[in-house]
């Protein structure tokens, strides 16, 4: 069974329809990349998966988003536990105005995951380790998260997301504001995380999609044009539109 199964999803901002009949299945431990021009709906789609669009009052969703066989838009869905299960990393690194330690500990604390203080410490260290950041910060855990470099901040945000033990990680252009070396670290991390997590990543960088993803989905004007294995997508896509996009025939 697919980890995530979306069928006939329509999304509206007020009267404007942003997504049209999206259907896609994402199996467990797969990295799927969403590509497409700006405003094509790929980020909007990503945010329907953990109901981050709930914060927009005029947003409306039709259709089904099943995660582990449960529709996340059922009225009795606990949004907080959904978001705990489906973690998210944002385009701009957004650490909290707290220490490095407290940034990672926050999610654990609010969800009451830890048993005691020692357990909390262990979980924070493990999350930082999994995000390939522990070595760089273990001597300054109590200093401000804003003292980290951009790439480190983004890995801190990944650690923060990992700390609440999600099963799915959504990444919204996680490396778009980073330099090539920091980008490479994030990409290596994604490949590493794939062993444990199901990952959906929105990216404008097609080489990035090609490097890290198992499958690639191409969005255009709110429609899912094509989804195929990444290797096929970049050598021989089925759709003319996809080909035109990945070869830069339109902006």
């Amino acid at each position: 069974m697919s980890k995530i199964s979306v069928s006939d999803l329509n999304f509206f901002y007020g009267k404007a329809q942003a997504l049209h009949d999206i259907s896609i299945d994402i199996p467990e431990r797969e990295v799927v990349a969403f590509i497409g021009p700006s405003g094509c709906g790929k980020s909007t789609f990503l945010r329907t998966l953990n109901r981050m669009n709930d914060t927009i009052p005029i947003a409306r969703v039709e259709g089904k988003v099943m995660i582990d066989g449960k529709d996340v838009y059922e009225p009795n869905t606990d949004v907080a536990s959904l978001r705990r299960k489906v973690g998210m990393v944002f385009q701009k690194s957004n650490p909290f105005p707290k220490s490095i330690f407290e940034n990672v500990a926050y999610g654990i604390r609010i969800n009451g995951i830890h048993k005691n203080r020692a357990d909390l410490y262990e979980r924070v260290e493990k999350a930082l380790n999994d995000a390939a950041l522990l070595g760089e910060v273990k001597d300054r855990m109590n200093t401000s998260a804003f003292g980290l470099s951009g790439g480190q901040q983004q890995r801190l945000c990944i650690a923060r997301a990992l700390a609440v033990q999600p099963e799915v990680i959504l990444m919204d252009e996680p490396a778009s504001a980073l330099d090539p070396i920091a980008t490479q670290k994030i990409e290596e991390l994604i490949v590493e995380l794939k062993k444990q997590y199901t990952i959906a990543i929105v990216t404008h960088n097609m080489q990035q999609a090609a490097r890290v993803s198992d499958r690639t989905a191409f969005f255009m004007l709110g429609k899912l044009v094509e989804v195929n294995p990444t290797q096929k997508m970049f050598t021989n896509p089925d759709e003319k539109l996809t080909e035109d996009y990945i070869t830069g025939r339109f902006g």
Binding site: N236, T242, I246
Partner: peptide, 9 residues
């Protein structure tokens, strides 16, 4: 140029 798809082929 990092060609893709048909260009790459």
């Amino acid at each position: 140029q990092q060609p893709a798809a048909h260009d790459l082929r």
